[in-house]
Design a protein around this nucleic acid. Structure first.
Length: 923
RNA sequence: CCGGAUGUGGUGAAAUUGGUAGACACGUCAGACUUAGGAUCUGAUGCCGCAAGGUGUGGGGGUUCGAGUCCCUCCAUCCGGACCA
């Protein structure tokens, strides 16, 4: 009997489906394990071999945990709102709902082909009204909450309203100090009209509407989040992005900065990932210091407030720099300098964000004004320069050229004298940002270490009322609205400029059907073109892509609940995602937003945990390995890669699927692209046409995509699964190479031959296993269990191969050995494992079999022990090297080889002995 | 510039706490069975060398009885953040 993988896989996939073996009950009596993949955006291109890498890893782990007796939640769904579907709709007129549905069907078929153990009953689609109903509901919770800095958690906005009524906002300072009315009393509050009250409350809400500079992308007609902008262009499409003021919705994620930072201590993310999130949050501790402007009327004295992380360098301040957009610019510029300042500001405005980032030219201009150092009383010139950013800190800095590189370059460029406060740490050539120097030229701070001085300076400034400690974050509130159609509508109506929420029983607010997807007027979204929508005064923005993905892991737990987004008892049971697998590209987007939403839902008491993911594994990207053919310029001749230097050629992408390794199938090439190259002639080397190669991103346009369906058809899903794992560690990025898949396929065939012989048929027996056979089995159990536990799937696959090789050598066909081996294999190659397990007469499905238990006694070496006396009858002096933990040696176990040598007269000179085990004998 | 990661045969890669480097597989070579094989099996395969032997984990230095693994330094590649005071 042959290994007919296609029949076997079809048979068992149907069996699992009809018997609902993947159905996961919310059975609270069993220990749980939640294994989650980042759900895909169902693009029109379908899956390529890069996608399933993480899915296979998580599927193996889920099946493994299931065998270990856990109730495993391993769901899949689709992040089906998003830009590409809408872009496609704009191009073709096809409704996003239609294309999305089609794409999802394709994805599901492709996924099922690989044999994943998803419980499709729990599938979620973010664009489904029964799902986004709850996205809208959670939005309302965000909208109706504020962050109470006293209790350090989100609380109902009603608590805030009551407080305002009683005592004004003295105990609840406004998070956004830029607002024109930062403080008010109880009486004032009572006097405010509805509109003003609502406007004030808006300054506190966790989801709020405001005007702000946003990243506006003209080409996409929409606003992008900071992390969707890469180097001044849009991440998707690479279109230019400019700043523009628009009415926008935001999430007040900045209030959670500290908790998002602290939470990282409690989760198992890679150091790289934690680092990225930490950098994105960008917490820095320092001080705000007020400098008076010299000569100004004390009554209206202009204070210049700066932010610094190094208050200890206060005596080294040689000049001040304020951002060109700073509000004080106009007020402090002297008449003499007015013209040059205006010119400079004009110049800065003419430069795009991109230019400012690309060419780091030193530029700036003196305002004519002087500030007074609040500690030394020294008068310091105030400059304007674009290297100071209006959006960070206070938009103004105190420049310490001897300690900061940018300040130093600026001082040198404009010939500003430099005060050295760090002695020999400063060489006159380059700034030195040391924190270790003992201060000089710093009056009462002289001789004090910089680290200590910082505290002293801040304390003194605080006493004098000229400064205070201040923590700054680089992270901004997240823009939460898009001028787009294909997203969740906001459950908000507008009346007289005041936002009102829909009531919960009006949800879901369904996305209306439209015939055109063109943007509305003034950068508004397509919804503003719909009369019925605008008549109802509904918000015309929609939510961004990350809205639906910020909580989907909760919906999987209780997907059909119509009373709540997820029952509290159910979320308490499934709790955190035990293993989350996905790419690094979501490091600062999705992962931060979903962490914030989880914390909010936790604060409001809807769930019992405040970090969504316990452990995160980042799968590497599978790149494409492109192939090129070289056409001799201006001809129809193609020259093999090794000879191309002799000609002038153009490189053309050739489809990797018609190349075997590097050798081109020239016939296939002639038939490719409807015969575009039908008349091609080839200049071969050694009778072959060799292609050039390059590693690139996997993409259809580069003809380097490989469809998993093709590989499954040729080798079977089990081979495909194991091969993807065999490629290397899941975390590592690597180019796809189909070549080695034969080896894995060969392994499965070899395994099959332990059970069946083509001529003899069934091979397995009920004989008792030998010690050698048991040793092979138990070594395999130990290794594979261990490897699976630590996600080292590539070495686990190797261990299977070793075991099967050894059993083949031993001609072992014993059920006692083979059956446990199949259970070990079931997570990796479920179809063949199920088939053979069944053939052996295993009870029920291998999916529910008990995992084999490793017993050490079977793996012990059976060697004889030779006690050797060292202090008694010595035949020679032996030097015994011990490791630190070892204090004495009672017995040395020598192996036969050493004894033999000893008897030949080669006495050991030194025996190296580590942790009770002899590791080396120096003869 | 800052931060993180990686660097091991022709190739993908192994090597739990420092303990025989290169497991396992691809590829290659030789052979067996075959009408044939892109099936299967056996053997060889880091490099230099006919051999004995030498050498070997990006380069250099160090700690150690012993270093792919730890420390210092330099180089290369990839990823992330970048005028954040």
């Amino acid at each position: 009997m042959e290994y007919k993988f296609t029949d076997i896989e079809k048979k068992w996939q149907e069996f699992w489906k009809t018997n609902q073996l993947y159905k996961v009950p919310n059975d609270f009596s069993k220990p749980k394990c939640y294994v989650l993949d980042m759900f895909p955006y169902p693009s029109g291109a379908g899956l390529h071999v890069g996608h399933p890498l993480g899915y296979i890893a998580s599927d193996i782990y889920s099946r493994y945990k299931r065998l270990k007796g856990f109730n495993v939640l391993h769901p899949m769904g689709f992040d089906s709102f998003g830009l590409p579907a809408e872009q496609y709709a704009l191009d073709t007129g096809q409704h996003p709902a239609v294309t999305t549905k089609k794409n999802i069907a394709t994805f599901k078929a492709q996924l099922d082909n690989i044999g994943f153990s998803y419980d499709w009953d729990r599938e979620v689609q973010t664009s489904d009204p029964s799902y986004y109903r709850w996205t809208q509901w959670i939005f309302l919770q965000l909208y109706n909450s504020f962050y109470n800095r006293k209790t350090n958690k989100a609380e109902s906005i009603k608590i805030l309203e009551n407080a305002f009524e009683k005592e004004g906002n003295t105990n609840f300072p406004m998070p956004n100090a830029q607002y024109t009315l930062p403080a008010f009393t109880s009486d004032e509050w009572k006097g405010f009209d509805e509109r003003l009250r609502q406007e004030i409350l808006m300054q506190y809400r966790l989801a709020y509407c405001g005007y702000g500079e946003v990243n506006w992308c003209e080409a996409l007609g929409t606003v992008l989040a900071n992390d969707e902008v890469v180097n001044g262009v849009s991440e998707r499409g690479g279109y230019p992005v400019v700043k523009r003021k628009l009415r926008q919705w935001y999430l007040r994620i900045t209030e959670y900065a500290d908790r998002l930072l602290d939470g990282l201590q409690t989760v198992e993310f890679s150091d790289a990932m934690k680092e990225m999130q930490t950098n994105w949050i960008g917490k820095s501790e320092g001080a705000e210091i007020d400098f008076d402007i010299a000569g100004s009327d004390p009554a209206v004295a202009h204070k210049l407030r700066v932010y610094t992380t190094r208050p200890d360098t206060i005596y080294g301040v040689d000049f001040m720099v304020i951002a060109p957009e700073h509000e004080l610019v106009e007020q402090i510029t002297t008449t003499a300098q007015k013209q040059v300042v205006d010119e400079y500001i004009g110049y800065v405005k003419s430069r795009s964000e991109r230019e400012r980032m690309a060419e780091k030219k030193i530029s700036g201009v003196f305002t004519g004004a002087y500030a007074i150092n609040p500690v030394s009383g020294r008068e310091i010139p105030v400059w304007i320069s674009e290297y100071v950013l209006a959006g960070y800190g206070t938009g103004a800095i105190m420049a310490v050229p001897c300690g900061d590189d940018r300040d130093h370059k600026f001082a040198k460029h404009f010939n500003i004298p430099i005060t050295n406060i760090i002695g020999e740490y400063y060489n006159g050539q380059d700034a030195n940002p040391t924190k270790e120097a003992k201060l000089e030229n710093s009056d009462f701070l002289n001789g004090i270490e910089m680290m200590k001085a910082a505290g002293i300076v801040v304390s003194q400034l605080e006493l004098a009322g000229k400064g205070q400690r201040k923590v700054n974050y680089r992270m901004r509130d997240a823009a939460f609205s898009r001028q787009r159609y294909w997203g969740e509508p906001f459950p908000i109506t507008w009346k007289d400029g005041v936002a009102y929420t829909l009531s919960e029983n009006e949800l879901p607010l369904q996305l209306p059907h439209v015939d055109t997807y063109q943007p509305g007027p003034d950068g508004e979204g397509p919804l503003s073109n719909i009369k019925d929508w605008t008549d109802r005064n509904l918000e015309t923005n929609t939510m961004p892509g990350y809205a639906g993905s910020s909580w989907y892991f909760l919906r999987y737990m209780d997907p059909h609940n119509e009373n709540t987004f997820c029952d509290r008892k159910v979320s308490d049971y499934w709790n955190q995602v035990d293993l989350y697998i996905g790419g690094t590209e979501h490091a600062v987007g999705h992962l931060l937003y979903s962490r914030m939403w989880t914390k909010v839902l936790f604060d409001l008491g809807y769930i019992g945990h405040d970090e969504p993911y316990k452990k995160l594994v980042n799968q590497g990207m599978i790149q494409g390995s492109s192939r090129f053919v070289y056409r001799v310029h201006g001809t129809n001749k193609f020259v093999s890669a090794g000879l191309k230097d002799q000609y002038s050629t153009d490189a053309i992408h050739a489809d990797v699927n018609m190349v075997d390794g590097f050798e081109l199938d020239t016939e296939a090439f002639r038939n490719w692209k409807k015969g575009e190259f039908a008349d091609a002639t080839f200049i071969l080397e050694n009778g072959k046409y060799i292609c050039g190669a390059e590693v690139e991103k996997m993409s259809k346009s580069k003809f380097n995509t490989v469809n998993p369906d093709d590989l499954v058809a040729k080798y079977g899903a089990d081979t495909f699964r194991m091969y993807e794992m065999f490629l290397g560690p899941v975390e590592m990025s690597k180019p796809w190479d189909t070549k080695g898949i034969e080896g894995v396929h060969r392994f499965l065939k070899k395994l099959w031959r332990l059970f069946y012989d083509e001529t003899k048929g069934q091979l397995w027996t009920d004989e008792k296993a030998s010690a050698a056979e048991l040793k092979v089995l138990h070594q395999a159990i130990r290794k594979i269990e261990n490897d699976t536990d630590r996600f080292s799937f590539n070495t686990a696959v190797s261990s299977f191969m070793i075991a099967v090789n050894e059993l083949t050598d031993l001609k072992c066909h014993k059920k006692e050995i083979l059956q446990p081996l199949l259970i070990l294999l079931a997570p990796y190659a479920p179809h063949i494992a199920e088939e053979l397990y069944n053939q052996l007469g295993g009870e029920g499905s291998v999916l529910n079999a008990p995992y084999p238990v490793f017993e050490e006694k079977y793996t012990r070496e059976s060697s004889k022990e030779y006690p050797v006396s060292v202090n008694g009858k010595t035949r020679t002096t032996i030097d015994i090297a011990l490791d630190a933990a070892q204090t004495e040696v009672e017995q040395i176990v020598l192996n036969n080889e050493v004894i033999k040598k000893w008897l030949e007269g080669k006495a050991p000179k030194r025996i190296i002995f580590v942790k009770g085990k002899m590791v080396n004998v120096v003869v």
